[in-house]
Design a protein around this nucleic acid. Structure first.
Length: 354
DNA sequence: AATAAGCCCAACCGCCGATAA
DNA sequence: GTTATCGGCGGTTGGGCTTAT
């Protein structure tokens, strides 16, 4: 049996909200709260709207202290950092940015941040590869146009001073098809080294990742497994108590002596030496197949399409793990950890909102 | 000035897990 | 144990706005 609709689709208004509708909804919620029932709310107010639509409108637009647009550099930084570590968990990311909604962040990422990084990356990468290939073809550096940047020693990346110490971060578990680092601790390590992390073997000889970031947020996440989910959670290789990658001791605005460069350049740079996860639209990170044909006096560079996640996974040797974590459950627990904490600190007991 | 193309973002859609009946 | 309902989430869409031609 299909799920019943939450409202009578024929009798609900869709599309942009009128100022009167906003006023009604806002006034009611501010006075009475949601009553814990979004579906019944529009009827109480006399709005011909779906309850879900009311909820969305309130959460994304009407509730107090919402910020729109004007993302700062540090917010960019936080978004990218979290995206790298947890993927498109917009609600979790939004929870770390007061006044921002998941929808806003999602839109910002999809329309601006991603393109910002993508555009710059493509330009630089093309130059970089062209220069490298010219060198491989036996050209001397002096023959290569100065506009072409040839990357330096990629191994010389042990500590990027822009990224200070990083919080204790447990290895991201294997997650089949999940846009996180998949069963590839080398990738994780490379990335986190780029980010300025360091590694130390634990008692079992496994490498744990000590990663302290400078995010100005408090997310000492306790990943205690839900009693409903623990059979699906990692029990052996994945300690359940962990902080994510953030620590409120560190302020994103703080810079250490000698730190240079913008975040975006660092963020980009870290991909050059990392086997990346699928980063929704950042497939370029997998690299492009470029070839230079030097026939006669002209050189032609052709670039193939980026690899997709499946291709990348196979190349990375990703295999099905019998102890595979149910990624959904793991991430949900992660999310719950964040939200529980947030709620404990900030939730309005009447509305349930921060 | 007119049109096309691209961008941005509010809102919708459908799925999922939790929970009440 | 099953089904219905709800809240919440991420992905997608469509229309208005801006920029380029």
């Amino acid at each position: 049996m299909g799920r019943a609709p939450c409202c009578d689709k024929a009798n609900v208004k869709k599309g942009p909200w009128a100022p009167e509708e906003d006023a009604k909804l806002k006034a009611y919620i501010e006075e009475h709260g949601t009553g814990g029932n979004w579906i019944a709310l529009p009827q109480k107010i006399g709005l011909k709207r779906c309850g879900k639509s009311c909820r969305l409108r309130w959460l994304n637009y009407l509730r107090p202290n919402i910020k729109h647009g004007g993302f700062s550099e540090e917010e960019d930084h936080i978004i990218c950092s979290l995206y790298v570590s947890i993927g498109s968990r917009w609600s979790i990311i939004a929870a770390q940015l007061p006044g921002r909604t998941d929808n806003d962040i999602k839109n910002y990422w999809n329309t601006r941040l991603k393109k910002k990084l993508l555009g710059k990356h493509r330009k630089d990468q093309l130059s970089r590869r062209k220069g490298e290939l010219l060198l491989r073809k036996g050209r001397s550096p002096s023959e290569i146009p100065s506009s072409i940047v040839v990357s330096g020693n990629e191994n010389n990346n042990s500590q990027d001073p822009y990224w200070p110490e990083l919080p204790v971060m447990q290895p991201v578990p294997f997650m089949n098809k999940d846009p996180c680092f998949v069963n590839d601790h080398t990738s994780i390590r490379k990335l986190l080294v780029k980010l300025g992390g360091n590694f130390s073997p634990d008692d079992n000889g496994n490498q744990s990742i000590n990663m302290v970031s400078h995010l100005p947020i408090d997310t000492s996440i306790n990943l205690q497994p839900s009693p409903h989910n623990d059979e699906n959670l990692i029990t052996s290789s994945m300690p359940v108590s962990s902080s994510l990658l953030v620590d409120n001791k560190y302020n994103i605005l703080s810079t250490q002596e000698g730190q240079t460069g913008s975040f975006s350049s660092v963020f980009e740079e870290m991909y050059y030496s990392t086997n990346p996860p699928k980063l929704d639209g950042l497939e370029f990170l997998y690299g492009e197949v470029c070839e230079i044909n030097t026939s006669g006096s002209s050189s032609v560079i052709t670039c193939g399409d980026s690899m997709d996640w499946g291709e990348m996974s196979s190349l990375m040797g990703t295999t099905t793990n019998t102890n595979a974590i149910n990624s959904s459950n793991y991430q949900r627990s992660l999310q719950q950890g964040v939200l529980q904490q947030d709620c404990a600190h900030d939730e309005d007991p009447n509305t349930g909102f921060i």
